[in-house]
Measured scan of single mutants.
Amino acid sequence: MATKAVCVLKGDGPVQGIINFEQKESNGPVKVWGSIKGLTEGLHGFHVHEFGDNTAGCTSAGPHFNPLSRKHGGPKDEERHVGDLGNVTADKDGVADVSIEDSVISLSGDHCIIGRTLVVHEKADDLGKGGNEESTKTGNAGSRLACGVIGIAQ
């Protein structure tokens, strides 16, 4: 089992970053940390998408990683996509320092995120509470600013 993974985020604009993942036990939580720069100040949706395909930019990554066919939600919700990591918060300089621990994603097994795409979005994720159909699919997080395929790390 891989215990570490990394993702280099890039987009068409100024947004870029490096996100690290570490899972010490196969059924334990995954620590997610790193930094994203070039964002507007505020909240930005942060999700693992189904495919590791960036051939047409971030759009070819498909929908959120959702092997259990659930509705979109927040990272602490029972009803959520596996890939729903909530929001990252950018400061006035456009930098989001990421520090998350998640017990639904994994670096092995059915919820493995390796080979899938991590995406940072234009807007805040409403965590499935926006009151419309799009909220239950995407959290109304808007366009995909930057993305990268999650790969095994040393």
Rank of each mutant, 00 (worst) to 15 (best):
V32R: 02
D125W: 00
K24H: 13
P29W: 04
K71S: 09
L43K: 15
F21G: 03
A90F: 05
I19T: 05
V149L: 09
L118I: 11
S35D: 11
K37E: 12
E133M: 10
V82I: 12
I18C: 07
V104C: 10
L127S: 07
A5M: 05
V88M: 06
V98K: 03
N87L: 01
Q23N: 15
D110V: 12
T138R: 07
R144M: 02
G131K: 04
D12G: 11
E41V: 12
I114R: 07
T117N: 05
V32I: 08
A146G: 04
D93A: 09
L118Y: 01
V119N: 03
E133C: 09
D110P: 07
N20S: 07
N54I: 14
D93Q: 12
L39M: 06
K24C: 12
T55L: 01
H81Y: 05
A90M: 08
V30M: 10
E79M: 11
E133T: 07
T59R: 03
G11P: 05
G94M: 11
F21E: 05
S26N: 07
V8Y: 13
E78C: 15
H111C: 10
G38N: 15
A96K: 03
N27L: 10
G34F: 02
D102Y: 09
V82P: 11
N54V: 12
V149S: 05
D97K: 13
F51S: 02
K24I: 12
G109N: 13
G94F: 10
I150A: 05
G139Y: 00
S108M: 04
H121A: 00
N132T: 11
A90W: 05
G34A: 08
F21K: 01
S103M: 15
G74W: 09
G128S: 07
G86V: 00
N87C: 10
N66D: 13
V82M: 12
I114N: 09
E25D: 05
G73E: 02
I18R: 10
C147N: 02
I100G: 11
P75N: 05
F46W: 06
D84N: 00
E41S: 10
A153V: 07
Q23M: 05
I150P: 03
L9M: 14
K76A: 14
H121P: 02
I19A: 07
G17L: 02
V149G: 04
K10E: 15
A124V: 11
Q23C: 12
K24A: 10
V98N: 03
V82R: 05
G131D: 05
N87S: 08
S26Y: 15
V119K: 01
E22V: 12
